[in-house]
Amino acid sequence: MLWILLAIVALIIVVTLVLFRVEDLSHLDSHEHPVREGPPSDAHQEVLGRIRELGQSSRGLRGKARLTALRKHMDGLSDGLSLDSEFRANDSPRGEWVIAPGVDTRRRVFYIHGGAWAAGSPRSHRGITDRFSHLANAAVFAVDYRLMPENRYMDGVRDCRKAYAWLLKHGPDGPGEASFVVVAGDSAGGSHTLGLLAWIRDNGLRQADAAVALSPSTDLTLTAPSNRENIRTDPLLGPAFGGLSKIPLPVIWWATLAAFRVSPASAVASPVRGDLRNLPPTLIHASDTEMLLDNARRYTAKAQAEGSPVELHTWAGMVHVWHIFVSLLPEAEEAFEDIKEFLHRVESGSAQPQTTQT
């Protein structure tokens, strides 16, 4: 019986290695990426309080009830914000136009919200999309892509692809070619953003003029060091996903395949594992204390090595996607000013990977 058990274990190991083919990307960890100096502002403590409220909103709940509470709390993040943009619902594709006063609607930002592919919405991210409309002088389309677990992961991916193709030829007032296009997203939406850029390139569509990814997930294999090393310093993702560090990675890969119906080693789920050549100028933001830090570092290092103009700007001690707290955090204001300056460099033709942090 023992030899049968050993044979089964050996077979599982072989199948795992063949099926997932997880390339070792640790050589990308040697690249240096400067971090903005200075401790977090006093307002950061209030933000930590908001994050604790998020955790408390679903405490004691399980399954669908927990997810419903999380979604409701996230949608409330925009409540009470002083926003002067117009928010206009769109049915097909499903989403929301965000239009700041006086912007040029031929200029468009395609925004993909975060929320672990299971929560979040255009409403939850209005603080971000409103700011994007102002700084880019553009109409923002926040796509309301299908979420898990009611839908498959690839349903959300297809929604983003379809909506991007539509955006190229439609503005908030009807048909019309876009004159300038930015693709942006945060966290899970940052993953969709980076994956979308490669899909656009491979399918012959008009490529975005620029892209912005805020604290993006780039690798669902969870092999980057910060996925484990930054659990205690990440007040948002640490409590939610830190427990995964106790589970062997092959088990996580099989569970991800079962839940997502996509291999975590595939480029559609892990953009860093795809072809990163010939991509548009891309700006990535990350915090040096978040679990996804090395996801951003690895993607940037690989993209630069393959010749794409991708740059990473890192803040010290910020929470995951601190940009959503723009009404509270001076660092969020700084981040949006950084994005504005990046887009100006893109339009002037001077956007190149930066080796120093300002």
Score class of each variant (00 low, 15 high):
residue 276 L to N: 14
residue 292 L to F: 05
residue 269 A to G: 07
residue 203 N to F: 04
residue 258 A to R: 11
residue 315 W to H: 02
residue 269 A to H: 03
residue 225 P to Y: 12
residue 50 R to L: 08
residue 92 S to F: 02
residue 17 L to Q: 15
residue 96 E to N: 02
residue 306 E to T: 05
residue 164 Y to D: 02
residue 216 P to Q: 12
residue 160 C to A: 15
residue 68 T to N: 13
residue 36 R to L: 14
residue 155 D to C: 05
residue 21 R to P: 11
residue 330 P to M: 00
residue 202 D to R: 10
residue 158 R to L: 15
residue 11 L to P: 08
residue 282 T to C: 09
residue 230 N to V: 12
residue 191 S to T: 13
residue 23 E to S: 11
residue 318 M to N: 01
residue 24 D to I: 02
residue 298 R to V: 07
residue 56 Q to G: 00
residue 258 A to I: 11
residue 273 R to V: 12
residue 301 A to P: 07
residue 238 G to D: 12
residue 323 H to K: 00
residue 192 H to F: 15
residue 185 G to M: 05
residue 248 P to S: 09
residue 216 P to K: 11
residue 330 P to H: 00
residue 204 G to S: 13
residue 187 S to L: 06
residue 119 A to I: 10
residue 107 R to V: 03
residue 51 I to W: 00
residue 291 M to V: 08
residue 262 V to E: 14
residue 228 R to D: 13
residue 231 I to Y: 11
residue 87 F to T: 08
residue 212 V to F: 11
residue 216 P to R: 06
residue 313 H to P: 00
residue 181 V to A: 15
residue 72 K to P: 03
residue 339 I to L: 14
residue 171 G to N: 08
residue 172 P to K: 02
residue 344 H to M: 07
residue 354 Q to E: 15
residue 214 L to E: 04
residue 284 I to C: 06
residue 186 D to W: 10
residue 87 F to Q: 09
residue 349 G to Q: 06
residue 84 D to P: 06
residue 195 G to P: 04
residue 199 W to D: 10
residue 139 A to N: 05
residue 156 G to M: 09
residue 39 P to D: 13
residue 175 P to H: 06
residue 273 R to Y: 12
residue 263 S to C: 11
residue 297 R to H: 10
residue 209 D to Q: 06
residue 120 G to L: 01
residue 7 A to Q: 10
residue 347 E to I: 00
residue 133 S to K: 04
residue 292 L to Y: 02
residue 314 T to L: 09
residue 354 Q to W: 03
residue 331 E to N: 00
residue 23 E to A: 10
residue 10 A to M: 12
residue 37 E to H: 15
residue 3 W to L: 15
residue 63 G to L: 01
residue 64 K to Q: 14
residue 127 G to T: 00
residue 26 S to Q: 07
residue 183 V to P: 03
residue 324 I to H: 01
residue 283 L to P: 08
residue 211 A to G: 05
residue 211 A to I: 07
residue 238 G to M: 10
residue 241 F to L: 15
residue 43 A to K: 02
residue 158 R to P: 10
residue 236 L to A: 14
residue 166 W to D: 01
residue 52 R to E: 14
residue 294 D to Q: 08
residue 339 I to P: 02
residue 48 L to G: 01
residue 346 V to A: 04
residue 224 A to C: 13
residue 197 L to T: 09
residue 310 V to P: 01
residue 10 A to K: 09
residue 314 T to F: 04
residue 357 Q to Y: 12
residue 351 A to T: 02
residue 287 S to F: 01
residue 199 W to T: 04
residue 318 M to E: 01
residue 254 W to H: 03
residue 36 R to G: 02
residue 155 D to Y: 01
residue 158 R to F: 14
residue 337 E to L: 13
residue 301 A to K: 07
residue 311 E to I: 03
residue 260 F to Y: 15
residue 346 V to M: 06
residue 312 L to Q: 09
residue 35 V to W: 08
residue 114 G to H: 02
residue 37 E to K: 12
residue 44 H to A: 01
residue 288 D to Y: 08
residue 239 P to V: 09
residue 68 T to E: 15
residue 237 L to N: 12
residue 183 V to F: 07
residue 298 R to H: 14
residue 49 G to E: 01
residue 235 P to T: 08
residue 350 S to R: 12
residue 217 S to W: 13
residue 38 G to H: 04
residue 101 P to V: 14
residue 96 E to Y: 04
residue 89 A to H: 05
residue 30 S to E: 09
residue 236 L to N: 07
residue 295 N to K: 04
residue 70 L to T: 11
residue 59 R to K: 10
residue 313 H to C: 08
residue 251 V to I: 14
residue 195 G to N: 08
residue 259 A to N: 13
